[in-house]
C-alpha cells in the first residue's frame, strides 16, 4: 500500500486491440462521469431565461443561440448587477454569508478535533496510566455509533444550555463525531514513532508536554494533514449536523443549508441553483486538486467515520 496517490508506477506498455479498447472504454466512462458536473458549470453561466427554457447541451448543439453571463454568480454572491443594485432583505440569496459561515464552522471543526485527538493519541500511546487500555477501547468502540444516536439527547442539552444556533455548539458536535476516528488513526501513527526519539529528550529533562509539542506534533504532520483534509471536507459538505444544531436562522446558515432551501424553491430559481451549487463546491474542489495526495491517503485510512 505504498502507492496511495493517483500516479501509476507500474506500467506495462503493449499495443494491441485490447489496449485500444481499454482506452475507448475508459474515455467513455470518464466522459459519462464528468458530464453532470459540466452541465451544471455550463448552466451556471447561462442567463436565467435560457436555463429555464432550454437544455444546457444546446450550447453545444446550437452554438449560435448560446448566451453567457456572470449574473447568476453576481446574484447569489450579493453583488450588484449591471442594471440594478445588489438585492437586500428577503430577496437576497446570501451565498456569500453562507460561505463565510461555512468557513467559520469548518475551520475550527477541523482544527479542534485534531488537536484534542493528537493529545489523546499521545496520551494513549506513550503515557502509562491505570485504565489506559480500557479507555482506549472505549474510544475505538465509539466508531460504531452513528451520529443519529446523539441527536435527541444533545439537542435537549443544547436547548438547556442555549447552545443551539451557536458556532460553538456545531464545533463541539463535529468534534465529538470526528474524535473516535481521529484518535484511532493518530494513535496508530504516533505509536509507531521509534522510542529512541523520546529517550534522549526524557534524559534531557523534557516533560511530556514539551515532547509532544516539539517532537510529536511536527513528526505527525503527514497524518494530521491527511485527517485534516478529510475532516474539513466532511464538515464543509455536512448537511445533517448543520440542520439539527445550527438551525434555520439565515444569519448562521451554511452553504448546504442555503442550497437546500434554494432547492425547495427551485420552481423560479433554477439559474440561482446552478451558481449557488458551484459556489458551494469551489472550496472542496480547490482542496481536492491541490492536496490530492494527502486527501487520498486520509481517505484510505478514514473511511470508517461514524
Amino acid at each position: 500500500m505504498t502507492s496511495t496517490t493517483f500516479s501509476a508506477p507500474r506500467h506495462r506498455p503493449r499495443i494491441r486491440f485490447g489496449t485500444v479498447m481499454v482506452y475507448v472504454v475508459m474515455i467513455a466512462i470518464t466522459l459519462l462521469w464528468i458530464t453532470p458536473t459540466i452541465g451544471l458549470l455550463v448552466s451556471s453561466f447561462r442567463p436565467a431565461d435560457d436555463v429555464k427554457t432550454s437544455g444546457w447541451w444546446t450550447v453545444v448543439t446550437n452554438p449560435d443561440t448560446a448566451r453567457f453571463t456572470l449574473d447568476n454568480y453576481r446574484v447569489v454572491l450579493g453583488l450588484p448587477l449591471p442594471d440594478r443594485p445588489a438585492p437586500t432583505g428577503g430577496s437576497r440569496v446570501g451565498m456569500e454569508v453562507a460561505l463565510l459561515n461555512t468557513l467559520t464552522v469548518a475551520l475550527p471543526a477541523t482544527i479542534i478535533p485534531i488537536l484534542i485527538a493528537a493529545f489523546a493519541a499521545y496520551g494513549f500511546a506513550w503515557i502509562d496510566f491505570p485504565g489506559r487500555r480500557a479507555l482506549f477501547i472505549l474510544v475505538v468502540a465509539m466508531l460504531v455509533v452513528p451520529l443519529q444516536i446523539s441527536l435527541v439527547p444533545i439537542l435537549r442539552d443544547y436547548v438547556a444550555l442555549q447552545l443551539g444556533g451557536t458556532y460553538l455548539g456545531v464545533w463541539l458536535a463535529h468534534t465529538g463525531f470526528g474524535l473516535p476516528l481521529a484518535v484511532y488513526l493518530l494513535y496508530n501513527y504516533v505509536s509507531t514513532i521509534p522510542r529512541d526519539i523520546f529517550e534522549s529528550a526524557f534524559l534531557d529533562g523534557a516533560t511530556h508536554f514539551t515532547i509532544f509539542t516539539r517532537l510529536i506534533l511536527p513528526l505527525s504532520m503527514p497524518a494530521l494533514a491527511s485527517f485534516a483534509i478529510f475532516q474539513f471536507l466532511w464538515t464543509w459538505n455536512d448537511l445533517l449536523v448543520a440542520l439539527v444544531f445550527l438551525g434555520a436562522e439565515p444569519r448562521v446558515q451554511v452553504v448546504t443549508q442555503r442550497l437546500l432551501s434554494l432547492l425547495g424553491q427551485f420552481g423560479q430559481d433554477w439559474h440561482l441553483l446552478t451558481s449557488g451549487a458551484f459556489v458551494s463546491m469551489v472550496v472542496p474542489l480547490i482542496v481536492f486538486f491541490s492536496l490530492q495526495r494527502f486527501f487520498v491517503r486520509g481517505l484510505m485510512a478514514g473511511s470508517v467515520k461514524g
Binding site: W33, I34, P36, T37, L233, W236, N237, D238, L239, V255, T256, L259, L260, L263, A277, S280, M281, P284, L285, V287, F288, F295, L299
Partner: peptide, 9 residues
C-alpha cells in the same frame, strides 16, 4: 472528483 461534492450539491 464527485467524491468531494456535498450530497446537496
Amino acid at each position: 472528483m464527485p467524491m468531494v461534492i456535498s450530497g446537496v450539491g
